[in-house]
Amino acid sequence: MRLEDAKPQPGSKKRRRRVGRGIAAGQGASAGLGMRGQNSRSGGGTRPGFEGGQQPLYRRVPKLKGFPMVNRQIYTTINVEKLSSLGANTEVNLASLQEAGILTAVKGPLKILGNGELTVPLKVQAAAFTGTARSKIEAAGGSCEVLK
């Protein structure tokens, strides 16, 4: 088989309809585009995204800064350096930190962050831990328990 032998199937290629070529041709005069208006003209129509003068979607949405997270979880955060003032083998959770006066405002579940040093072993119960916080608590001989 050669390149010149490649032909379309018989009946698969239809002749294009020649519109606007007189009244007897079937689609004469206005060529099926109507009488007047933007879409009857040559080169008529609008660019993609045009909404008839209304502010288009691509100009309405916020730019560059991204969209806010829909169901963002807000945590009450505390660094491990604040936990170093507690006694050894103390159970640390949201309620005990409030009683000790380390936390004053509660915004949500407790999250432990890893800034600072920790020397005393603690049993920490929190909703979330950062990687450095977990490693520092366990290096001091404590344990981390994730609450749901």
Rank of each mutant, 00 (worst) to 15 (best):
E117Y: 15
A139M: 13
E81T: 13
V70L: 13
L110D: 00
G28H: 00
E4G: 15
L57Q: 08
Y75T: 09
G44A: 03
R134S: 07
N79E: 15
L64G: 04
G87R: 09
G45C: 00
L33P: 06
R59F: 14
G32A: 01
P62I: 05
G45E: 00
N93E: 05
S85G: 08
L83M: 07
A29T: 12
E4K: 05
K65F: 06
S143M: 12
N71E: 08
E81V: 15
V92K: 02
K107L: 11
P109R: 04
Q125M: 10
Q98W: 00
F67V: 03
L86D: 05
V70G: 06
C144L: 02
K136W: 04
T76C: 02
K7N: 07
S96H: 07
F129C: 11
A88Q: 10
P56Y: 08
G142H: 00
G108E: 13
T76L: 01
E4R: 15
A29I: 13
G116H: 10
R17L: 12
N79F: 14
N115H: 13
R134Q: 14
N89L: 10
R17G: 08
V70I: 14
G142W: 03
A128T: 06
S84G: 05
G53S: 09
G141V: 12
C144F: 06
T77R: 08
T104S: 02
V92H: 06
A139S: 13
R21Y: 10
S30V: 08
I112R: 00
K14Q: 14
G20M: 13
R134V: 07
T119M: 07
R72T: 09
G43L: 04
S84Y: 03
L57H: 10
G45P: 01
K111C: 10
A25C: 13
T90S: 13
V146C: 05
R17I: 15
L64P: 06
S40G: 14
K111H: 04
S96A: 03
G26N: 09
N89V: 02
S84L: 15
I137M: 05
A133G: 03
N89P: 02
A29Y: 01
S40E: 15
V124K: 00
A25D: 06
R41N: 01
A139W: 10
C144E: 13
D5Y: 11
P62F: 10
G108F: 11
G32K: 07
F67I: 11
K136Y: 04
L97G: 06
G22D: 07
A95N: 15
G131C: 00
A95M: 08
V70Q: 12
C144I: 01
L118C: 00
K65S: 06
E51L: 06
E99Q: 04
L86K: 15
Q98H: 03
P121N: 07
V120M: 12
R72S: 09
V70E: 08
E138A: 06
G142S: 05
K63I: 06
S96V: 03
K65Y: 05
L57T: 15
R17Q: 07
Y58A: 13
Y58W: 12
P68Q: 07
L118P: 01
N115D: 11
R17C: 09
P10W: 13
V120R: 12
P68W: 01
N89C: 11
P48Q: 03
P121V: 06
V120K: 13
E145F: 11
P8Q: 09
V80A: 03
A128K: 12
G20P: 02
I137A: 12
R47G: 05
S85M: 14
I74L: 00
L113D: 01
S84A: 12
G53L: 11
V70R: 00
V92F: 02
P62K: 14
